[in-house]
Design a protein around this nucleic acid. Structure first.
Lengths: 201, 201
DNA sequence: TTTTTTACTGAACATTGATCATTTTGTCAA
DNA sequence: TTGACAAAATGATCAATGTTCAGTAAAAAA
């Protein structure tokens, strides 16, 4: 192993430790709970050290965001085995909402943080795009199967994604708190079913 | 005019000045651009003075949020004159998106800020609810007219709201930037039309 | 061992929201 | 007009933030 490679691996280890600590702080208390000093304390280094491995705090948050997408994609991979297109899309929606509610902070970072992709290259920016493409494939399968009356794949995919994202966002941000607690899950489920043009169930 | 009343009016004036300054700072540069010192400088008072009229920064942001809803409701009042239910709902959606894109920061405060209603009483919390009820009325008119196959008003209203909110949020947060700039508006419009079960146009 | 490169430190800086003893301003009775 | 009280406003101060950088310690190379 060359010197350069070892250095890289060690640096990678350091980055991992920092990201791990940052993730713990983030999922526990959100953005403002992640402070350079707290990260430093967790990994038992001084605050300045972090800046040897990351440009700034935003850089760290961006990496957490990518980790979120990795988990998200892994989550969605379980759908592949479902043959029926509409059932697959429907399950995808349920997974989407479940992921958002189980990882509200991460979800926000991935889909509702404005400046997160500001300084990232086109390569990294395509990570979220990959997730959308996958989703769009499922939509296409439904269109091909004639589940929806015809329309463009992209438009339909965006409409459904927007509904899911809207529901997730409103739920997370407490904007549906006026609904009775016990009927919340049902209403959300039915709302998504409405967008899928499903009836009754 | 009693002493007490005059005091109240003067205090109200002071509150207005503070809120006006805060709003200017907010719409220009978002949450982090609103600082107590900047507000103080704008109104030519010392930072400490602001705390005589508002409990803390969150209190100020909450009031800005309510101002946002006032503007929003005024915006939506223009719909009343449209007789056709579906056309009214459709126009309401366009208004909704237009408002969100014209006031992205305010929109975020109103619909996508987590802790904003934390310390507010049930009275104040009902302000956003009023907006939803109004929207739900339009949905009910559509259901009564048989525009959608039957379903509960609340569920349908939430599904449509979620779609609008999702589109607004994704647009504002730049998550639809992968679409070509020139087709963006069209795609968004069609996506909402899809949720409304409109075809072609 | 000496020199050079690398890794790390932690004090310091500018800002932030918030507090509070002090001072200024305003009001009214004597 | 003066004196006394109340209200309003100040601004120094606090703890915490992200970030920087001269300096130190450790490791590697010579």
């Amino acid at each position: 192993m060359s010197i350069k490679e070892r250095k890289k691996r060690d640096a990678g280890k350091m980055r991992s430790r920092i990201l791990k600590a940052a993730m713990q702080l983030y999922v526990k208390g959100g953005y403002e709970n992640v402070t350079m000093r707290r990260i430093a304390a967790k990994i038992e280094y001084s605050p300045g050290t972090i800046y040897l491995y990351f440009q700034n705090k935003n850089d760290i948050m961006l990496q957490l965001c990518y980790q979120g997408f990795e988990r998200f994609l892994a989550h969605q991979d379980k759908l592949e085995k479902i043959a029926d297109p509409l059932e697959r899309l429907s399950a995808g929606g349920r997974y989407y909402l479940a992921f958002a509610l189980e990882n509200p902070e991460l979800y926000e970072l991935m889909f509702a943080t404005k400046e997160i992709f500001k300084e990232s290259g086109p390569d990294e920016e395509s990570v979220p795009l990959r997730a959308f493409r996958k989703f769009a494939e499922n939509v296409k399968a439904c269109l091909d199967a004639g589940v929806f009356s015809d329309g463009q794949v992209e438009t339909t995919a965006i409409a459904l994604w927007a509904t899911l994202h809207g529901l997730a966002s409103l739920l997370i941000k407490g904007r549906l708190r006026f609904l009775p607690e016990e009927s919340l899950a049902k209403v959300v489920e039915q709302a998504f079913a409405f967008s899928l043009r499903k009836r009754g169930e």
